[in-house]
């Protein structure tokens, strides 16, 4: 399972980096969305997978899955939501101001 997950994570990263490198600013935002999935899966895969019961003590199991990465990823998901929406709104405002979604046209002025 861990090897399969590692490969899937690699694919997600590949696709999101490819999206980052494209000219359309919308694709860049989609890239961040996918990248956050990749990161979350990576965090949880780095600990061992599926060892023991879900981390709920009232199940009375003998061993539990590592709860720490889960807490970490839960935090990460919510932060990623905040960051993605901020980015999305920035894209939205950029488009409204400049009437283009093409990053080559949006490049900074020459004297910077």
């Amino acid at each position: 399972m861990e090897i399969l997950m590692s490969i899937i994570i690699g694919i997600i990263f590949t696709v999101s980096v490819y999206l980052f490198l494209s000219r359309s600013i919308i694709r860049v935002v989609l890239g961040t969305l996918l990248l956050s999935h990749g990161v979350h899966l990576l965090l949880i895969t780095m600990s061992e997978l599926q060892r023991g019961a879900p981390p709920l003590l009232n199940l009375g199991a003998e061993s539990y899955t590592d709860p720490l990465p889960q807490a970490l990823v839960l935090t990460a998901i919510v932060i990623a939501f905040g960051v993605t929406s901020l980015l999305l709104v920035m894209v939205y405002r950029t488009y409204k101001e400049h009437e283009t979604d093409d990053l080559e046209e949006l490049r900074g002025s020459a004297d910077e």
Binding site: E2, I3, M5, S6, I7, I9, G10, I11, I12, F13, T14, V15, V17, Y18, L21, S22, G38, L42, T45, M46, E48
Partner: peptide
Amino acid sequence: INLIVSIAVGVMITLVSLSAF
């Protein structure tokens, strides 16, 4: 170039993930 770089990143992440495990 885009393709090469993104695949490189992907492969690197896969390797790091595997090594971490």
